[in-house]
């Protein structure tokens, strides 16, 4: 039981897919200008990672080794199509905001990475939990980045104004730079910095 719990908890901190393994950065940066698309994206990736891990793990004994990449891509692409159609039907405005990045879940390295590294060698139940944990680890970073970018960039959270009007009257201004793409990179860089300063064993040696 402790082992199963570990599968979910570890990716949130010690083996976080974004800040430690540096996978799935592309979409993580692009959708984080606001909190709402970031939440939806995180949720979608979690669902796809968990389910694709589960399905590939069920099929793992029947897939010939040579064509496994194609099989994995087909399974993931099918799940992403389902997510895409679902978002278009029930959350059209968010799906417009996410635009091509929903489709890019297919090539998100986290999913392929977990399929290759975990699902091909473990049972369906464990794989499902592993996918869930990694998806949640990804979502966690997404939400942290989006929180800071929306708060400082537009003074709102989930679209509601958080910074009181009196601040603006006293001369406070939104930091327009936070909404621009480059700031996403710098925010993630700072998160990595903080995390690695607190856990010295994760630090990389520059000299190699």
């Amino acid at each position: 039981m402790a082992n199963l719990k570990k599968l979910i908890i570890e990716p949130l901190r010690k083996t976080n897919p974004v800040t430690v393994l540096v996978l799935g950065i592309c979409s993580c940066l692009a959708v984080t200008a606001q909190l709402k698309p970031a939440l939806v994206m995180g949720l979608s990736v979690t669902v796809v990672t968990a389910l694709s891990n589960f399905i590939i793990s069920l099929l793992r004994k029947g897939i010939p080794n040579r064509i496994r990449i194609i099989v994995q891509l087909v399974v993931v692409a099918t799940l992403v199509i389902l997510i895409d159609q679902f978002l278009k039907a029930f959350a059209y405005d968010v799906s417009k905001q996410l635009s091509v990045y929903v489709g890019l879940i297919i090539t998100n390295c986290i999913i392929m990475g977990r399929l290759e590294a975990f699902a091909l060698s473990h049972g369906p139940g464990e794989s499902f939990l592993d996918g869930l944990g990694n998806g949640l680890g990804y979502s966690l970073i997404l939400v942290i980045v989006a929180f800071f970018r929306e708060l400082f960039g537009s003074g709102t959270l989930l679209g509601y104004q958080v910074i009181p009007q009196s601040f603006y009257e006293a001369g406070y201004q939104n930091n327009g730079l936070m909404i621009l793409p480059p700031m996403a990179l710098i925010v993630v860089g700072v998160i990595i910095w903080i995390q690695r300063t607190r856990n010295p064993e994760m630090q990389e040696n520059n000299q190699n």
Partner: peptide, 24 residues
Amino acid sequence: RYSKVPKGLQGVGISFIITGLMGI
């Protein structure tokens, strides 16, 4: 490699920040 980067930033961290600056 020849510059003095803070410990926690070495490797991936500093690459992120440099990419951000290049993006600007």
